[in-house]
Design a protein around this nucleic acid. Structure first.
Lengths: 338, 338
DNA sequence: GTGAAAGCGCTAACAC
DNA sequence: GTGTTAGCGCTTTCAC
């Protein structure tokens, strides 16, 4: 309901709407003098251009969409932070959608975004099996950049972290600190992200000569309460001396489970997790983490989307890999001789 | 770039665009038969209405804006989660903006939103002094609901928590557990939210007969690194035996500071903080928190905004207060006789 | 129950 | 350097 529109502005200045429009967009055709007059009047009347009229006419929205599984998540909220900052620099708007890991919701969002509402989409996929065809059809119509939760079977630009290496190094770290029976808390296994983490775990075991016992891989549930019980039973039954958790949400229940089972971290069980917890340092014991550069991923993903907008991106199927950080803390401390 | 528009749809069906439009919006003027035909064809052609044309014509956007200081924050990300869920139910879109506590950025966002881009705004204010006049002028033009970080001097609908009572009870809890010299880590003090927390602290001290030493109130900096030093020096110099932190961001440095100073929490210093940390339980020691119902605040705030849209809200200056939860943990445990 | 026509506010092609 | 005009895709009178 901006009261004042370009016509009124033009009228007030004894100019045509076209001239005002051009002046506002700093067109080279307009004299500096006129530009100044227009800008001043615009400011004086609190003129705000109607974005819908503009978008309708120009077929672009100055808006991008971010689709993530959850907003209230240390990783995603940081990534969104990065995205928002980049968008703000360019005067772009950011629409947020969360899928709650539900593929139907995700698909419905994507479909709605085919309307031209956004100039591009940044997406971190839900866990359920993805409809490759459908997503590729969408990415033909609107630029998409995938980040973190990606699927290599889908064509597209992707920003990930070094999931394989991170998991591999994590297991190696556990082994170096004395672990012989290392469990894996499995998540995201329908996505490349999860598959690579799992493969890193398995390969590290193999390379270090440890058996890869399928029993030691716990497939998590979508329900977090359930996971607590699952994990507790898993630890009680198999008594791993080390655990790599593929997501933060599965590491926390380990603390509770160990408490309940009377097990000591790290003495009875060493724990390491992919995590962006800001204060892993303050946990009891402090948690060894694989810290993903979440903010940077957001910045990078958004940056590439803008490059695509500006036709400065020529690699429609490139994957950019940022390095995660293994931060060693108490939860994986090796046995010390007393 | 939706390839197919209402005209093509109409053409395909041998109908006029007007009829199709009406059918799609389920107008009572249209026969059921026609509606079904239209809907089917729309689905078959993957028709997605152009939101800008519609918004331009109808003067509404089906979009709301959320303005917060930071996205990557346990409280705000949960609140946004709540907002997003409500918006999704109503097929509304959510634009996200973060101010980084900067008033100029906040003002600039608000001004840009005067364009009609959004039907309403949910805002949690930045800390710096607010321009009452300006914000009220904006809220005359577009509905605004304030949440959590509010300023009572500004007219408007507000959703907050019981900040005064929460702080009061927190201090009482500290006193009951033996504290005699209670410090306060001050933040948000330019906002009602912060003022009420401070007043709760002061009143509790007074009511319990403890002196209110101005020295024991530490005004935090905007810079978090600085806060670490500030807090460490504060604790070293004044040696409080209890601390109430008005925001989570100031409580964490207390842990680090105490470690560095060789002080034990809770024996040397009891700590309690406003916080929405999911795993306060797992900190070392576990942190006693005042837990705000962040998700519910988001739901409530969004709900009221939609009521305003539907003219079902008649209290332009009402404040709704949700209750926070004091969760007692190790960091405030009383002295026990050994 | 359906169609014709105008117009939301802006921009771009074309005039001059 | 500026004005005229048409039209983006949709919705809504107003006709019939």
């Amino acid at each position: 309901m901006g009261e004042v529109n370009i016509k009124k502005l033009a009228c007030e200045l004894n100019l045509s709407a076209a001239t005002v429009s051009r002046a506002l967009r700093d067109s080279h055709e307009i004299s500096t003098e006129t530009k100044i007059r227009v800008l001043e009047m615009a400011k004086r009347l609190n003129y705000e251009p109607n974005p819908f009229a503009s978008s309708l006419r120009r077929q672009k929205s100055k808006t991008i969409a971010v689709i993530v599984p959850e907003i209230a998540n240390n990783f995603f909220s940081l990534a969104i932070n990065g995205i928002e900052e980049v968008a703000r620099e360019r005067d772009y708007h950011v629409l947020i959608y969360q899928t709650h890991e539900n593929r139907e919701i995700e698909t419905s969002f994507l479909n709605r975004l085919l309307s031209g509402r956004v100039d591009g989409i940044l997406i971190s996929l839900a866990c359920e099996d993805v409809d490759k065809e459908h997503i590729e059809k969408i990415s033909d119509q609107v630029p998409i950049v995938f980040f973190d939760r990606v699927d290599d079977d889908i064509e597209g630009v992707k920003i990930t972290t070094d999931d394989y290496e991170s998991a591999y190094n994590a297991v190696q770290h556990l082994i170096e600190n004395g672990c012989k029976k290392i469990g894996y808390l499995l998540a995201l296994n329908s996505l490349s992200t999860g598959k690579k983490r799992l493969k890193g775990y398995l390969d590290a075991l193999k390379d270090k000569g440890l058996p890869d016992d399928k029993q030691l891989i716990l497939k998590s549930s979508a329900n977090n309460d359930e996971n607590h019980t699952l994990i507790k039973n898993f630890i009680a039954e198999h008594r791993p001396d080390g655990i790599l958790s593929s997501i933060e949400e599965l590491a926390m229940p380990c603390y509770y489970a160990c408490n309940e089972l009377g097990l000591n971290i790290p003495n009875d069980l060493k724990l390491i997790s992919f995590s962006n917890l800001a204060h892993a340092q303050l946990l009891n014991p402090s948690l060894t983490t694989i810290n993903q550069p979440a903010f940077e991923i957001g910045v990078e993903a958004a940056g590439i989307l803008f490059k695509i907008f500006n036709k400065r991106w020529y690699e429609p199927n490139e994957t950019i890999i940022l390095k995660s950080n293994l931060i060693k803390r108490e939860s994986t401390r090796g046995f010390t001789i007393i």
